[in-house]
Amino acid sequence: MPELDDELMERFQKGDEGAFTLLVRRHERPLINFIAQFIGDRDSAEDLAQETFIRIFQAAPRYKRGRAQFNTWMYHIASNLCKNELRNRSRRERHWVDNTVKDDDAEDASAGVESRIANAPADASYQPDVVLERKELRDALRKAVAALPEQYREPLVLRDIQGLSYEEISKVLDIRIGTTKSRINRARLILKDKLKPFMEKL
């Protein structure tokens, strides 16, 4: 049975650095994904994820088991770093990212369309126009998520992409559960309206 995050933190507090490495391995993928979806920039996402782990490393002696889940604590740190980053960006200039979060599947899709056509199976989803439409939809979705107001984007990413519960999200964002639910519903409604033209094509 894998050790709980709290147990790993306790081991790290006692000087076992291997426990910290395990924590990093366990959380690096979801953390980078959250940051990338939140700020819309893959390169900065890695930097911010590393910064988050460094903050955790520094704050480890103050971490107390049971006060908060490691997961929500980590996302809370990352969320604050992301907000700072977004604030700094908008201060520097409106240097928004279009080229940033790369959809690996989508890239593969466009590169591999020809080979897929060549091997075209009976499945309709492998039809070239369907593949391209899905790519369009996915690009539009990414842009729509990135364009959501920050207060809606963050809970939406935590819920629908990271899979956190409403309770966990309300702890990360330090808001009430009711507010969390209504913000997520609002974010989904905005996305639905933006994606309507693409959805109706499919």
Binding site: T21, V24, R25, E28, R29, I32, N33, A36, Q37, R42, A45, E46, A49, Q50, F53, I54, F57, V101, K102, D103, D104, D105, A106, L137, R138, L141, R142, V145, L156, D160, I161, R188, L189, L191, K192, L195, K196, M199
Partner: peptide, 29 residues
């Protein structure tokens, strides 16, 4: 449409860490 949108959001491919992520982190640490 709302339900379809939600499915699409949930199925967005995850951003994977680059292979040198952990190495860089350990250097910074």
């Amino acid at each position: 449409l709302f339900a379809q949108t939600l499915t699409e959001v949930e199925e967005l491919p995850h951003v994977e860490p680059s292979p040198n992520f952990t190495t860089t982190l350990h250097e910074r640490l």
